[in-house]
């Protein structure tokens, strides 16, 4: 399995199920075991980041990075950075539809996924 298998729905599902941040990690460009899955993941990531911000989810809560199996240090750094980012943002507010007042704040409970 490959970062190219990451369906945008997986990310939305994670946010819906209680994740405060989602980190997608793939092989470095050119190193994908399945040739080009990570390029596809990158394209989908850009689109998805736009989409989540329309749902009221800060773009920083979704991150994509490349880490190879030999990059233990980078792996640790990337995870710790992400944890820092999410801690700074605090828990993701999930606002039920009927209490939503601001325009443009989506309702996560109502997004039907899967």
């Amino acid at each position: 399995m490959c970062s190219g298998r990451i369906d945008p729905q997986f990310i939305l599902k994670a946010f819906q199920s209680g994740a405060d941040g989602v980190l997608i990690l793939g092989c470095h460009p050119g190193d994908c075991h399945y040739k080009e899955g990570n390029y596809k993941a990158l394209r989908r990531f850009y689109l998805l980041r736009k989409l989540i911000s329309q749902f009221g989810i800060e773009e920083e809560r979704l991150k994509l990075d490349w880490v190879s199996a030999s990059e233990a240090d980078k792996f640790v750094r990337t995870i710790n950075d992400m944890v820092e980012t999410v801690k700074a943002l605090g828990p993701l507010k999930r606002i039920p539809a009927h209490t939503s007042t601001e325009k443009g704040t989506g309702d996560l409970q109502e997004i039907k996924i899967g």
């Binding site: 399995m1 490959c2 190219g4 369906d7 075991h33 399945y34 040739k35 080009e36 596809k40």
Partner: peptide, 10 residues
């Protein structure tokens, strides 16, 4: 097919 799954995601 090598099962990379990119078609499934798309």
């Amino acid at each position: 097919c090598k099962g990379c799954g990119t078609c499934v995601a798309a």
